[in-house]
Amino acid sequence: MIGKLKTEKSRNRRPATRTLMFRGAAVFAGALLLVTAVGALFARSDSSGSAPYTGRLVVREFSALRNSLDEASGEAEVLRLELARANAVIEYSARYQIPADLAGLIYDTALRAGIDPELAFRLVKVESNFDPKATSPAGAVGLAQVLLRTAQFYEPGITLERLYDPATNLWIGFRYLRDLLGTYQGNLRLALLAYNRGPTKVNELLQLAQDPANGYARSVMRGYRKGGGGEGLP
């Protein structure tokens, strides 16, 4: 299935890639011809002894050419980002054995919420094992295991039924984790413990000079490398 998905995505990328290649070649050829023409005009001007060529037409042509180059460069960057996303989604889908559309939803929502996608997938794996209908004894629900009272802080009036919606659940859960990272000044370990145990409990234990660790943060962070680099827990 994954091989088929890769083949289909590869086929879909080829027309766009060829288009950019042809367009880039055409722009380059146009630039070369324009430079050659300008050189000839200046050479003719110098040999005849007439006033130097002002080049208003050439200036306009160069301006149009620069705009074309900028546009082609922008399209190439968009294509690069799309390819990077597609590769990441395929990788996460294969690693966790989940549908590509779910992997894409987690990936996109994590970026939107300002959370490293690698961390987001690890969180969802530990919380619900990617089951959107998961429900804990404490009442946490969905992919990110969000409590209704927590969700209502972010979206007043939200119902339990709506909280089971994967997109809504992930968006609230990842925003909550991002806010906890801010609360604990970027300390991922404490932020994860607060996500699992609640910030009130974590703060209470810290004030008593006790370690709030319960194994949860280690489960999420084991081998974690932010963005493919940095230090994580062994």
Score class of each variant (00 low, 15 high):
Arg95Leu: 15
Phe62Gln: 03
Phe130Cys: 12
Ala84Gln: 06
Val141Lys: 02
Tyr92Gln: 09
Pro156Arg: 02
Pro166Leu: 07
Leu148Met: 07
Ala140Val: 02
Glu82Tyr: 01
Gly39Met: 04
Ala72Glu: 07
Glu82Val: 02
Ala76Pro: 03
Glu155Tyr: 12
Leu57Asn: 10
Arg85Trp: 01
Tyr164Gly: 07
Pro166Gln: 03
Asn169Phe: 05
Val38Lys: 10
Ser93Lys: 02
Gln145Pro: 13
Thr54Pro: 11
Glu155Gly: 04
Glu118Arg: 05
Ile115Val: 15
Leu147Phe: 05
Ser93Leu: 11
Ile98Val: 15
Pro99Arg: 07
Thr150Ala: 02
Ala144Arg: 06
Arg60Ser: 14
Gln97Trp: 09
Thr36Gly: 09
Val141Ala: 01
Pro52Glu: 10
Ala151Glu: 00
Thr150Lys: 04
Leu147His: 09
Ala88Ile: 00
Ala86Leu: 01
Leu33Gly: 14
Ala103Phe: 05
Glu155Lys: 14
Trp171Phe: 12
Asp70Val: 15
Tyr96Trp: 08
Thr159Val: 04
Leu79Asp: 01
Phe130Ile: 11
Glu71Arg: 14
Ala140Thr: 03
Ala51Ile: 13
Ala40Cys: 09
Ala37Gln: 13
Gly49Glu: 05
Ala31Phe: 05
Glu75Cys: 04
Glu161Arg: 14
Ala40Gln: 14
Ser50Trp: 07
Leu160Ser: 09
Arg60Glu: 10
Leu33Ser: 15
Arg80Met: 00
Asp108Asn: 12
Ser48Leu: 15
Ser48Arg: 13
Phe153Ser: 11
Leu123Tyr: 12
Ile158Arg: 00
Asn87Trp: 03
Ala167Tyr: 08
Ala37Glu: 10
Asn169Ala: 04
Pro137Gln: 06
Glu127Ile: 07
Asn67Leu: 15
Thr54Gly: 11
Tyr164Arg: 06
Leu81Gln: 03
Ala113Arg: 06
Glu161Asn: 12
Ala138Lys: 11
Thr36Trp: 10
Ser63Gln: 10
Leu65Ala: 09
Glu127Trp: 07
Arg56Gly: 11
Asn129Cys: 05
Gly104Ala: 13
Ile115Gly: 03
Leu34Glu: 09
Pro166Tyr: 01
Ala86Tyr: 00
Asp116Thr: 12
Asn67Tyr: 12
Pro132Gln: 11
Leu34His: 03
Trp171Leu: 14
Tyr154Gly: 03
Gln152Met: 06
Phe121Cys: 10
Ser68Glu: 10
Gly49Asp: 03
Gly30Lys: 02
Gln152Arg: 15
Leu160Gln: 15
Lys125Leu: 13
Leu69Phe: 14
Leu119Cys: 05
Leu123Pro: 08
Thr36Phe: 09
Leu160Thr: 09
Thr159Gln: 08
Tyr53Thr: 11
Gly114Trp: 05
Leu65Tyr: 06
Arg95Pro: 09
Ala144Gly: 12
Ser50Glu: 11
Ser63Arg: 06
Tyr164Lys: 10
Gly157Ile: 00
Val126Asn: 06
Arg44Val: 14
Val124Cys: 10
Val141Tyr: 00
Arg122Trp: 09
Ala31Ser: 07
Asp108Phe: 04
Tyr96Met: 01
Phe62Leu: 15
Phe130His: 10
Ala51Lys: 09
